[in-house]
Design a protein around this nucleic acid. Structure first.
Length: 475
RNA sequence: UGGGGCGUCGCCAAGUGGUAAGGCACCGGAUUUUGAUUCCGGCAUUCCCAGGUUCGAAUCCUGGCGCCCCAGCCA
C-alpha cells in the first residue's frame, strides 16, 4: 500500500488492538441482557435459524440468566471449553426477515494462535461485532465497504446502539471492482496460487498489487485507473483495456526508450565496412529531452525483428521485404537485396545495402520511406530473457457459468518465455524494476526477482497500441 | 411482496424536475525517423418497459420486467 502511494502515518490499526475493549463491551451486553451464551451445536443452530422465508426459533439457551452467562463467558475466555462448545450470541430477533439479526454469534471459541496476539486469547469476536466497534473506537465517520454488507448494516447499527461507544460511524456500501478476463476475489486468487496455476501472489499475471507491481505497472497508473473507473453501487465489470490504457498513458511520458529484438533475424549490410562501428546518439524520449540520450553502436551485422520482414508482403505492409526499403530507426535506410536460407528453406539472414546519405536525414531525392524498424548490433547486443504476458483467462467473465469451473477458462498461453532476445548495450545494467519502452513493442520492466546484471530478465507490462495488428486482423 | 440492493451508449460513469457531462473502446482525418504519442472531428432526440402527474420527467407517482446479495461458530 505504501508502494501504491498511501501512508497512514500513526493510524495503522488492527482489530486485534481492541480485543480487550471488545471483551469488556461483550460483558456489558451480557449485563444488559442483550447477549447470551448459547450451547447449541453449529448444526442445531443452523436448524434453529430458519430459512429465507420462514422465521427462526429461539434457542433453548436464550433465557439463561445474566450471572450464568457471565460465568460461562468467563470460562470460555479462560479456556475451559473445547472449540464449538459454546458461543456468545446477541439477543435480537429470531423472526427478523434479515437473517443477520437472528441472534448472530458474536464470539466463538478458537484454540488457535493469533498472528498478533499469540496465545493470549482462545475466544475471538466475529466480524460484525468487531468491525463496528473498531470503527467507533477510531472515531471513523464513514465506514466504506462492499455491497454484500448491506444486509449487515442493521447489525452494525444495533451493536453500536447498545454500547457506550464514542461515536456512531455510518456504514456505506459500494460495488466491488471487477475487471474482465481475470478474477479478483481473494478466494479465487488463493486457489490460483495454491493450485500452482501461477507462480505466486506476485506472478505478473495476477491482478494483485504485488503482481501488478512485478508486471511493471506504476503506482500512478493504478491510482489513475481507479479514478477513471469511479465508485458506484451497481455491479459492473471494467474493461481490462482501461487498465492497459492507464498504464500506457503513464509510461508513455516516463519510460525511457530502448531497442530490443525479441525474435532476432540477422541482417547484413553488404556495403558497410566489416570493421566499422558508428556510435549513434539517440534520444531516450521522442518528446521529452529531459530524459537525455544514449549511444547505440551500429555496424555491418545487425539483428531485426523477424516480424518486420515478409517475403511476400501484403500491399499495406510497409516494413522489409525483398527489394523493399526501410529505415533503421535513428540510422540509415537499407534496401533488402536478398535472403539466405538454411537447408530446410527457412530464411536465416537478410542481405541489404544501405543508402549512406540517409543517417539522420531524409533521402536527397525526396523519395518516401514509410517503414521504420528497430534493430540491435549483432556484435554489441546483450542477451536477455523476455517474458510475454497475456490475459489470464480466455473468457471475459470466467465465472459466468456456475456449472463450469472458472479455472477451465485459464489461458494456456498467458505466459510465453523468450530466451534468445537481444537488447541494445545500454540496457546491460538495467536495475530490477526499471521500466523501458522497447520501441515499437511495448513497455517492459526488469523483473524485480530474477533480473541480474549477468542475466537480464524483462517482463512485458503491456504492448503499444498496435494499429497494424488491427488492420491485419481485418484483412 | 421473506429481506436488502441495482437498472443512463459496446465497457465504466455524471446527472436527484428545466430539456443527456466525461473517460475507455470504436470510426474518420492531420502531424510523426516508434503503424506509438499528440492533434482535430464523429459517436444516446434518449435514460429497462408501460401508464400517469407536470408547461416541462432519466429525475416524481403507479404497475410490470430483468439482474445481484443473504440461511458461516468467514470476512
Amino acid at each position: 500500500m505504501r508502494w501504491l502511494g498511501f501512508d497512514w502515518g500513526e493510524n495503522f490499526f488492527h482489530a486485534s488492538d481492541y480485543f480487550p475493549q471488545l471483551y469488556e463491551f461483550a460483558l456489558d451486553l451480557i449485563r444488559q441482557g442483550k447477549a447470551y451464551v448459547c450451547s447449541l451445536s453449529a448444526d442445531e443452530m443452523r436448524d434453529y435459524r430458519g430459512t429465507l422465508k420462514e422465521p427462526g426459533r429461539e434457542s433453548p439457551y436464550r433465557d439463561r440468566g445474566v450471572e450464568e452467562n457471565l460465568d460461562l463467558f468467563g470460562r470460555m475466555k479462560a479456556g475451559e471449553f473445547p472449540d464449538g462448545a459454546h458461543v456468545l450470541r446477541a439477543k435480537i430477533d429470531m423472526a427478523s426477515p434479515n437473517l443477520n439479526m437472528r441472534d448472530p454469534v458474536i464470539y466463538r471459541i478458537r484454540h488457535e494462535e493469533h498472528h498478533r496476539t499469540g496465545d493470549q486469547w482462545v475466544i475471538y469476536p466475529m466480524y460484525d461485532y468487531t468491525h463496528c466497534i473498531s470503527d467507533a473506537l477510531e472515531r471513523i465517520t464513514h465506514s466504506i465497504c462492499t455491497l454484500e454488507f448491506e444486509d449487515h448494516r442493521p447489525l452494525y447499527d444495533w451493536v453500536l446502539d447498545q454500547l457506550a461507544v464514542p461515536c456512531h460511524p455510518q456504514q456505506i456500501e459500494f460495488a466491488r471492482l471487477n475487471i474482465n478476463y481475470t478474477v479478483l476475489s481473494k478466494r479465487r486468487l488463493i486457489e490460483l496460487v495454491t493450485g500452482g496455476h501461477v507462480s505466486g501472489w506476485d506472478d505478473p499475471r495476477m491482478p494483485t498489487i504485488c503482481g501488478l507491481r512485478r508486471r511493471g505497472c506504476t503506482p500512478g497508473s493504478i491510482r489513475n485507473f481507479c479514478d477513471k473507473v469511479g465508485v458506484a453501487k451497481r455491479d459492473s465489470c471494467v474493461d481490462m483495456g482501461l487498465l492497459e490504457y492507464c498504464i500506457r498513458e503513464d509510461l508513455e511520458n516516463s519510460a525511457p526508450r530502448a531497442m530490443a529484438v525479441l525474435r532476432p533475424l540477422k541482417l547484413v549490410i553488404e556495403n558497410y565496412p566489416e570493421d566499422q562501428v558508428e556510435e549513434i546518439e539517440a534520444p531516450c524520449h521522442p518528446n521529452d529531452p529531459a530524459l537525455g540520450t544514449r549511444r547505440i553502436p551500429f555496424c555491418r551485422e545487425l539483428y531485426i525483428e523477424r516480424d518486420d520482414f515478409m517475403e511476400d508482403p501484403p500491399k499495406k505492409f510497409f516494413r522489409l521485404g525483398p527489394g523493399r526499403e526501410v529505415r533503421l530507426r535513428y540510422s540509415y535506410i537499407v534496401r533488402c537485396t536478398g535472403v539466405v536460407r538454411d537447408e530446410s528453406g527457412e530464411i536465416v539472414e537478410l542481405r541489404c545495402v544501405r543508402d549512406p546519405d540517409t543517417r539522420g536525414a531524409a533521402p536527397a531525392d525526396g523519395r518516401k520511406v514509410k517503414g521504420i524498424i528497430h534493430w540491435v548490433s549483432a556484435r554489441h547486443a546483450v542477451p536477455a530473457e523476455v517474458r510475454l504476458y497475456d490475459r489470464l483467462f480466455l473468457e471475459e467473465d470466467p465465472c459466468a457459468d456456475k456449472a463450469i469451473d472458472y479455472k477451465s477458462h485459464l489461458n494456456p498461453d498467458s505466459l510465453e518465455v523468450l530466451t534468445g532476445c537481444l537488447a541494445e548495450p545500454s540496457l546491460a545494467g538495467a536495475a530490477p524494476e526499471s521500466r523501458y519502452q522497447f520501441e515499437r513493442l511495448g513497455y517492459f520492466c526488469a523483473d524485480r526477482r530474477d533480473c541480474q546484471p549477468s542475466k537480464l530478465v524483462f517482463n512485458r507490462t503491456v504492448t503499444l497500441k498496435d494499429t497494424w495488428a488491427k488492420i491485419e486482423k481485418k484483412d
